[in-house]
């Protein structure tokens, strides 16, 4: 058997080995992590074809290289020239034209796959998404519900209409496989059909500032019954929220205050609200103040006015000029209840 024959067999062998190696790592037939959306299926299908072609091309280049290194090696102290082969036009045309058609085919499959991912279900329901440094809020316009967790029923397409209050963010749930930037000044759309119940996380994928790493909120895919129960509970909570405290809690969620300030004493990016009202607060400049209405109002209007000791300076919290005096009073009323 000539060199070509041996290398041909080795290339096939290596292709098979590479493919099964990838498969053993769980990477050939699908991407990681576990797929949880209908859109993931067509994405994983394209990935599978790509992995097959990659296994082949990797072997096609590496095997003849390594074979040559082993077989056509210059012996020690030897200085002989190789065969005088300048090129071969037919061969060059072959390895220009075949890859050309391969990539066109892949572009076609890619476009087809994108079409599947973007396929519109007329029954899709809408959730409005608000992104801001450094958390997400979700508004269900049908029910008037606002939440920091995104709850979705399994098997039904949802359209997220996403807006950003400050910089560019990107909505990514790895299990859904799809990612979409959220850009100030426009509404971007994210369409997904969850297929697997479970608890996931939306992770901001576009660098958005100092706490970007922590811009993660829960995404929960429920059965239809669980989802309806959750919605009913949220509607009830919203109805109860007609008091100033209730309004305050709603505002704290809607404006993503709760993304950084916990209600139960948990340490987060900002100081906790638990037992905050009326307490003595040590500031970064060494002084102490009482957390009363005036102090809390000032801290919401201008987060840099006083920095609480051990917290980031300058403050990572944006100012909230859009809140009215009444709204701030409601938020403070809510803070007062956290004892």
């Amino acid at each position: 058997m000539g060199h070509f024959g041996i290398v041909g067999i080795l290339v096939i062998l290596m292709t098979v080995l590479t493919y099964f190696g990838l498969d053993a790592a769980g990477l050939a037939k699908q991407m990681h992590p576990v797929a949880a959306s209908a859109q993931a299926a067509s994405i994983d299908q394209l990935w599978h074809w790509e992995m097959m072609v990659i296994s082949f091309l990797f072997s096609l280049i590496v095997v003849p290289m390594v074979y040559s290194l082993a077989v056509f090696r210059q012996k020690k102290g030897e200085l002989k020239d190789g065969e005088h082969i300048e090129g071969n036009t037919q061969l060059e045309i072959t390895w220009t034209v075949i890859p050309l058609f391969t990539v066109i085919a892949f572009a076609y499959f890619g476009a087809y796959s994108l079409g599947e991912v973007r396929r519109v279900d007329p029954d899709a329901f809408v959730v409005n998404v608000q992104a801001r440094q450094f958390s997400w809020t979700f508004e269900y316009p049908e029910y008037g519900v606002v939440s920091t967790e995104l709850h979705l029923p399994v098997g039904r397409q949802v359209v997220l209409k996403m807006e950003s209050a400050d910089v560019i963010h990107s909505f990514w749930v790895p299990e859904f496989r799809v990612k979409q930037d959220v850009v100030p000044g426009r509404v971007t759309e994210y369409r997904i059909t969850p297929t697997k119940e479970g608890s996931y996380k939306v992770r901001c994928a576009e660098l958005c500032g100092v706490s970007h790493a922590y811009m993660e909120n829960k995404v929960i895919v429920d059965s239809q019954a669980q989802y309806e129960a959750w919605v009913a509970e949220q509607v009830k909570l919203a109805a109860e929220a007609q008091t100033p405290e209730g309004q305050g809690k709603l505002l704290a969620t809607k404006n993503a205050c709760v993304g950084c300030h916990s209600a139960d004493g948990t340490a987060m990016t900002g100081p906790t609200w638990f037992n905050l009202y009326g307490s003595q607060v040590s500031l970064a400049d060494g002084s102490t103040v009482t957390a009363d209405e005036a102090f809390l109002t000032e801290s919401i209007r201008d987060p840099n006015a006083s920095i609480v000791a051990t917290f980031a300076s300058p403050s990572v919290m944006p100012p909230y000029p859009q809140l009215t005096d009444e709204e701030i009073a409601n938020i403070i009323a809510y803070i007062k209840t956290l004892k």
Partner: peptide
Amino acid sequence: LLVAVPTGVKFFSWVATIWKGRI
């Protein structure tokens, strides 16, 4: 994806250069 075509030409040409050389 078209970028892959001229890049592929380079790879194939390199392998063909190495093939049967005295390395």
